[in-house]
Amino acid sequence: MFIALILWAAPVYAIDVLALYKDDQAVRTHLRTLPKNEVKEYITQVMLPGDQVRLEQVEQLLKTTENLSSEEYFAAAMIMQHGSDPAHYKMAMELSQKARALDPSNKNASWLSCAAEDRYLQKIDQPQIWGTQLYRKMNAEGTHEIYYLENFDKNARSDEQRVQCGIPTLAGIEAKLEKMATLTDRNKQYRLWKTGT
């Protein structure tokens, strides 16, 4: 007697890295709208668990897919940039470099390759070299928090290299931080850092 065995497999769903990136950015956009007293809980209850899920999905995608577009590599890189381990930041740097190699006009990828390198270096207790990783502290007058750069080797990269990555010159960075320090609203400070307005 012949018995046929039928094995049922769960359906395999494609991982849409661009949708994951959209979610990643939406969480951060919402975070910047919250009152200060709600930020910590939102980060621990919503953002960090979501980051972990998205990161695991990107890791799975990279194991099973070899050919991604420049935008997909950039999206994957940004999700890895929001990991917690030096290996995540190193992978973010490598993925953004792939995105830039596929499309040299992808300015977001150029910037992210430098930002990921800074984050990786800081995670392994080395100074950042591009000037992309900001920290917050109370200003000298004690009136509001301001952004500042910590552990920054200003001479490791030239202004020309920074501009090629979409990062301001050293003078531009310092001027921007000074202007940001005059603003009391953290969201306005952040917007000025990211957009210049």
Score class of each variant (00 low, 15 high):
residue 177 L to D: 02
residue 189 Q to P: 02
residue 175 A to Y: 00
residue 67 N to S: 13
residue 120 Y to C: 09
residue 140 A to F: 05
residue 80 M to D: 03
residue 82 H to Q: 14
residue 118 D to V: 03
residue 129 I to T: 02
residue 185 D to R: 01
residue 73 Y to S: 11
residue 27 V to Y: 14
residue 112 L to G: 01
residue 138 M to V: 14
residue 187 N to Y: 10
residue 178 E to D: 15
residue 11 P to R: 06
residue 101 A to F: 12
residue 77 A to Q: 08
residue 83 G to A: 02
residue 24 D to H: 02
residue 67 N to I: 11
residue 77 A to E: 06
residue 8 W to R: 10
residue 146 I to V: 15
residue 173 I to G: 00
residue 38 E to M: 06
residue 166 G to N: 05
residue 178 E to I: 07
residue 110 S to Q: 14
residue 89 Y to A: 06
residue 86 P to S: 04
residue 70 S to R: 09
residue 54 R to T: 13
residue 130 W to I: 04
residue 156 A to N: 03
residue 110 S to C: 09
residue 83 G to T: 01
residue 112 L to A: 01
residue 104 P to Y: 11
residue 71 E to S: 15
residue 11 P to I: 05
residue 63 K to Y: 04
residue 42 Y to H: 09
residue 155 N to G: 11
residue 77 A to I: 11
residue 98 K to D: 09
residue 98 K to G: 08
residue 96 S to P: 04
residue 121 L to C: 05
residue 156 A to L: 07
residue 168 P to N: 09
residue 74 F to G: 04
residue 164 Q to C: 03
residue 126 Q to P: 03
residue 17 V to K: 03
residue 97 Q to Y: 09
residue 115 A to H: 01
residue 96 S to H: 04
residue 150 E to G: 10
residue 171 A to V: 13
residue 190 Y to N: 00
residue 162 R to N: 01
residue 36 K to V: 11
residue 15 I to W: 11
residue 20 L to A: 01
residue 5 L to M: 07
residue 96 S to T: 03
residue 172 G to I: 00
residue 183 L to R: 00
residue 10 A to W: 05
residue 184 T to R: 12
residue 74 F to V: 10
residue 30 H to M: 13
residue 37 N to T: 04
residue 32 R to K: 12
residue 151 N to S: 13
residue 122 Q to G: 09
residue 79 I to Q: 03
residue 59 E to K: 14
residue 152 F to Y: 13
residue 139 N to I: 04
residue 187 N to H: 12
residue 2 F to H: 14
residue 13 Y to L: 15
residue 102 L to Q: 07
residue 65 T to G: 01
residue 116 A to I: 00
residue 115 A to G: 04
residue 74 F to H: 12
residue 164 Q to N: 09
residue 56 E to P: 06
residue 121 L to Y: 05
residue 106 N to H: 13
residue 164 Q to V: 06
residue 13 Y to E: 10
residue 13 Y to K: 10
residue 81 Q to L: 14
residue 94 E to W: 02
residue 148 Y to S: 05
residue 98 K to M: 12
residue 47 M to T: 14
residue 165 C to F: 02
residue 131 G to V: 05
residue 171 A to Y: 08
residue 97 Q to S: 15
residue 72 E to W: 03
residue 127 P to E: 09
residue 186 R to N: 10
residue 36 K to R: 11
residue 132 T to W: 12
residue 156 A to E: 03
residue 141 E to Y: 06
residue 153 D to C: 07
residue 149 L to V: 07
residue 155 N to S: 12
residue 66 E to W: 07
residue 170 L to A: 00
residue 114 C to A: 14
residue 172 G to N: 00
residue 56 E to M: 12
residue 69 S to I: 10
residue 85 D to M: 08
residue 156 A to C: 05
residue 126 Q to L: 07
residue 110 S to R: 11
residue 82 H to E: 15
residue 23 D to H: 09
residue 56 E to Q: 15
residue 137 K to C: 11
